[in-house]
Nucleic acid binder design. Structure first.
Lengths: 206, 206
DNA sequence: AAATACTGACTGAATAGTTAGTTACAGTGC
DNA sequence: GCACTGTAACTAACTATTCAGTCAGTATTT
């Protein structure tokens, strides 16, 4: 139930052990109930050791956030060989599917809770700003490529990427905070949007 | 800075005083830092009185959540006289504008933080499920009306409403958790989506 | 021997919640 | 009018617990 996410499976040093323990505590208790004690309970070594490696709870959680975001960025589907129209399918899967890594339920839950903290903590907001920019820019580049390849309409890449960004945040949040399962229907509609507003008509070919 | 939201301005009984104090503590400290003590500090009467009116912290916060959600539902732009195509503009304003009530920054922040709690608390999730259903159903009805009025294309109302729902959550969250200001660009693109994928062409008239 | 990794026992502050008691007041008998 | 009663609103002071963080000291490595 806990360590289904691969990069936590075999921690290689103490820092990774700590981050793994933090992740497990997160999964079990959620952000608002997290304590050093609960992290320590998941940690094979002593609680004092946490303070040997970190100045305090805040620093530990910030490092955890940074680690989570770096994982999220690493898992983002980057450019491969195929065309932009095929690549965008991968982006959609990342957005909607469960079972991936970015879309792992526990991972998503942790991310949503961490993000909410950004509402009142400028340091958190800066981290998410960086990752949001990362995501937006990559989608923007993808759109631009598709236009150059002639498979996308001549849309505004920045605006389209912005919509993708908000959809990313929206789907992740909706998925873990509501039982009203709206995501399948949303995917259908979002695919319709992509067909009508992004993909170039190939009525001549098809 | 705090009580810019009208319905907290003049509490009429002790319960409303408590909810107001809770809201103020929320705005100042955020969900993860909220304590009974901090609520009590904003409350003109005694801390013990909180326990006279509520069984404990959990019950108080759940009542607060229910109150916030009922406010959100009340503020949702419901059917007025005009056509569905005009009405959908109001929905867009609710989604993107700042300065309204549903779109008040402090209010949004509180909502995003409360929603994140739903990731680990089934009781919270049930509340949000109810409100999400409320929102979805109303948008769905609006879409249906527009189709009947002949101003919308014959889209699937449920799927379109699902997309609106995710956009609601996404914009609210993005707005308060990231400095990457993507919302204006997102609105442009979302309006393009509405023109192309929802509104019926009136090329004959315009 | 020197540095680093690590531990268990501790501390003071903050926490949610309790308790014993005090007001405020509406109703009732006289 | 006036004393009495019951109830709900309210309070100050307290308790037990949990919290983040410290520290003195031990093991391990180099």
């Amino acid at each position: 139930m806990n360590d289904s996410v691969s990069f936590f499976e075999e921690p290689e040093d103490t820092r990774e052990e700590i981050l793994k323990a933090t992740y497990e505590a997160f999964c079990e208790h959620g952000y608002s109930d997290i304590t050093i004690q609960k992290i320590s309970d998941k940690f094979p070594k002593s609680k004092s050791l946490l303070y040997h490696h970190y100045d305090g709870k805040d620093e530990l959680l910030l490092d955890f956030l940074e680690f989570m975001l770096s994982q999220a960025e690493e898992q983002f589907p980057l450019r491969t060989g195929e065309g932009a129209d095929e690549h965008i399918e991968l982006v959609l899967d990342t957005m909607f599917l469960s079972g991936g890594i970015l879309t792992d339920e526990d991972f998503s839950r942790a991310m949503v809770e961490l993000r909410a903290e950004a509402a009142h903590d400028e340091r958190y907001r800066e981290y998410f700003t960086r990752t949001d920019r990362f995501t937006s820019r990559h989608v923007e580049y993808l759109i631009r490529s598709g236009i150059e390849q002639g498979v996308f309409q001549e849309v505004d890449p920045e605006e389209t990427a912005a919509m993708f960004q908000v959809m990313f945040v929206g789907t992740a949040t909706q998925k873990v905070t509501s039982n009203e399962s709206v995501l399948e229907a949303c995917r259908s509609e979002f695919e319709r949007y992509i067909r009508n507003c992004l993909l170039r008509d190939d009525t001549d070919a098809d």
